[in-house]
Design a protein around this nucleic acid. Structure first.
Length: 770
DNA sequence: GAGCACTGC
């Protein structure tokens, strides 16, 4: 796994660098920025008396005043072995060259005065690795610093890097390690952990356990511009908490410092957001706030500091098509060969496409045309990159480009944020990406190729200028660019809100309509989510969270799946272990029955999987598969090969299964002796399917006389997906329950089981009788 | 007869 190279690792970039992306994002906004003067000098006069609560911190300040003077004077803690310290000192040179380094003092100073800071740092500024280190020796920093990341790989690799820079051991190497991380399935923190990188989801779970976040002195929220649903929830909770502390309504002894970090921040929006939390929104005119922000790189109003750090980016020249194109796969092909003939090596090409099908057709075209190239021409090496691609194939993009060759990476938007591709000097951008859209009225999500936003196309273009000046070819016209949306709609405005609302309710936010959302979802979407939670029994009639809802919020699965687990745990169902096996298979990222390309393999696979498939449908087939795999103790990989089952997926399933079993034990749904049992002799499929129905009541359909299926709620036609074991059955079930709904060319029900009509009626009755 | 990307005590 070497995805997501932390942005700081290309720290050794050179001097003359303009920041195109930053410029493009901000032009038209008339932002004046001072040239990089000595940091700290730019701090505006503040009103410290307003928020000084620092008797205690004053004591600490005296105690630690030696350390805070120089950032490099880190305490050589107990685990400071000579080789670690040597490495730390080596790295210090690189750290000092980072654009954020000169801002260290002003950041520290601002946070001593104010509890909240909004820090904008472009890619490569070093903010993710340096900011936590700037703060560890601060007088107020008696506890841990948390720093959130949207992705696991980023959390882990940043933690490793920061440990090195601090000359500390890391994670589980030693209980004395100062730097740790916490991601799903892997908590590597010790009693001495001072800097803790964690995924947003992990922090949310911690907030449910400890709403006041007493284990932290500071929470740094990184990559806020990606605007995941989780980050929006974290920001809302943090705003409530800091204003609570401010008003003296919290039991916390120490202040909580909050640093919001973003690459392309809407600084005004974030400052306003927290300002309103302090009750200042009404009094402060918008103009006043903007003027303050525009005049300085590090600034503060009464309560919130802001800081702008220049990034590292080479200029990228943009080319547009003169005319719009109908077939951008073909246009991309032409440009690839134009670049290849015209531009010298080295210089790999990164092509952004919408999905696997386009990637594979372009790959084939490149290979076909490359055959006609003159023998002395450098080779073209097309490399596909999308999430569903097996790990080893993804790794190929990190291998050095062979001599006398040019890599052409054909990627989905995975290359926009999650994977940094080295060596790229040319970007070709089709201008589209597939995005998930939730239509709350229909209660379904769809996946369609839509034009990207300006900010996404700037992000894509920036990928050409990481190592040298680059070029970006946009497969649309310049007037078309002007029509693009300014920024990508935050996820919270286009997704199913059930999970988010449940988290809020479990945290004790009862009035979700007045929760501080950075972007408020439409009221219908909120109401629909509340209604669904009522149907699932997660809320009581008065809208507060029920005992069931509280348990659901603590299970690492979607609310529907959580409800199914709780249903299966009821004595009259008594099928919890079996249902956990099924839920584990359902919530694994990749499917356990992988796709097979060639016809003859397909027949072999059908044959090999025959004793895993069950007539009841996909869910019982998953159960059989998980159980047989779990019973296989000698060679599980061989078992997978024999049955055409994905070994990687099964390892993932077993991880989830273990976690769910543990969690169910904590919630007193299972006893320790339940866990030692490997397998139930004969699963009760009626009880299992009835449990599934309790969560998937809106995912049911009945057979119509014309042979099609129509959903019970909403009466939409759905077709059984070709990947289902029930697809193409001659004798069709009178009703189905499905755990996935997919709208592509038409509406598909995926992962389907046959059920009886009267079971659905029973489940309906229970769901609506509230 | 088909597959954007992330993520959870």
């Amino acid at each position: 796994m070497s995805k997501t190279k932390p942005e700081e690792s290309n720290a050794a970039a050179t001097s003359q660098i303009t920041n195109n992306a930053a410029f493009e994002a901000k032009k038209g906004k008339k932002r004046k920025r001072k040239a990089d003067t000595a940091a700290g000098a730019e701090l505006a006069p503040s009103s410290p008396e307003k928020r000084q609560k620092s008797q205690q911190s004053h004591r600490n300040q005296q105690r630690k005043s030696n350390q805070e003077a120089r950032p490099q004077a880190l305490p050589s803690n107990g685990n400071g072995a000579p080789h670690l310290l040597r490495r730390r000192d080596e790295l210090l040179k690189t750290r000092k060259a980072l654009p954020i380094w000169p801002h260290a003092d002003s950041i520290r100073e601002a946070l001593r005065k104010n509890n909240v800071m909004v820090l904008t740092g472009e890619t490569g500024s070093g903010k993710s690795t340096q900011v936590p280190q700037f703060l560890t020796s601060e007088p107020w920093c008696t506890e841990t610093i948390a720093i959130t990341q949207p992705r696991r790989v980023a959390a882990i690799s940043l933690a490793r890097r920061v440990a090195e820079e601090m000359g500390s051991l890391f994670g589980k190497q030693s209980p004395a390690a100062k730097v740790g991380y916490s991601v799903r399935f892997d908590n590597a923190c010790g009693p001495e952990t001072k800097v803790k990188f964690l995924t947003e989801g992990m922090l949310l779970q911690e907030i449910l356990r400890d709403p006041e976040m007493n284990q932290y002195s500071a929470v740094v929220v990184d990559e806020v511009h990606e605007r995941s649903v989780n980050v929006d929830l974290i920001l809302g909770f943090l705003r409530n908490l800091v204003s609570e502390i401010e008003k003296g309504g919290s039991k916390r002894k120490q202040p909580l410092k909050v640093v919001i970090m973003s690459a392309t921040a809407d600084v005004e929006g974030l400052v306003k957001f927290f300002d309103e939390g302090f009750g200042n929104g009404a009094e402060r005119s918008k103009k006043e706030t903007q003027d303050e922000i525009e005049d300085h790189t590090t600034k503060q109003n009464d309560l919130i500091s802001t800081c702008f750090v220049e990034g590292r980016q080479y200029p990228v020249k943009t080319h547009y098509l003169p005319e719009p194109t109908m077939d951008w796969v073909e246009s991309a092909l032409k440009i690839i060969f134009k670049i290849h003939y015209k531009e010298p090596l080295p210089g790999d090409i990164l092509v952004f496409l919408t999905g696997q099908d386009k990637i594979e057709s372009l790959e084939k075209l490149i290979n076909d045309y490359a055959e006609g190239m003159e023998k002395e021409m450098p080779k073209l090496l097309p490399l596909p990159l999308f999430a569903a691609l097996p790990q080893y194939a993804q790794q190929r993009i990190f291998e050095p480009t062979p001599r006398h060759a040019r890599k052409v990476i054909l990627a989905t938007n995975i290359a926009e944020t999650s994977v940094t591709v080295p060596g790229v000097r040319f970007v070709i951008d089709c201008g589209k990406s597939k995005i998930k859209q939730f239509r709350s009225k229909l209660g379904l999500e769809s996946l369609l190729a839509k034009p990207v936003s300006k900010s996404a196309s700037i992000q894509r273009k920036g990928r050409a200028g990481r190592e040298a000046p680059g070029q970006c070819y946009r497969l649309y016209t310049e007037p078309d660019y002007a029509t693009l949306e300014e920024r990508t709609k935050p996820e919270i405005l286009r997704c199913d809100l059930v999970q988010a609302i449940l988290t809020m309710k479990a945290r004790g936010v009862n009035d979700v309509l007045n929760f501080p959302f950075l972007d408020r979802p439409p009221i219908e979407a909120l109401k629909e989510a509340l209604f669904q939670l009522l149907r699932l029994g997660a809320l009581k009639a008065d809208g507060t969270v029920s005992d069931i809802g509280l348990k659901m919020s603590k299970l690492p699965v979607t609310p529907k799946l959580g409800r199914i687990i709780l249903e299966a745990g009821r004595p009259e169902r008594d099928c919890l272990l079996d249902v956990i096996d099924i839920i584990s298979a359902l919530s694994s990222d990749d499917s356990i029955f992988f796709n097979i390309v060639t016809e003859e393999k397909k027949e072999q696979a059908e044959e090999a999987r025959r004793n895993l498939y069950r007539r009841e449908g996909d869910h019982m087939s998953f159960l059989t598969t998980v159980q047989q795999y779990a019973e296989e103790h000698s060679d599980r990989r061989a078992w997978c090969d024999r049955h055409f089952v994905s070994h990687r997926a099964m390892q993932n399933v077993m991880n989830i299964r273990k976690q769910l079993r543990q969690q169910c034990q904590t919630l007193k749904l299972l006893t320790p002796s339940d866990l030692t049992a490997d397998v139930t002799s004969s699963p009760n499929s009626d009880a299992i399917l009835a449990s599934l129905l309790r969560g998937f009541i809106s995912n049911t359909a009945r057979l119509c006389p014309d042979g099609s299926y129509k959903t019970f709620l909403g009466n939409h036609t759905v077709a059984i997906h070709p990947s289902s074991v029930l697809h193409g059955r001659k004798v069709k079930a009178e009703a189905i329950v499905f755990s996935e709904f997919l709208y592509t060319n038409k509406a598909y029900a995926k992962k389907v089981s046959a059920v009886q009509m009267n079971w659905i009626e029973d489940a309906m009755e229970e769901a609506f009788d509230i």
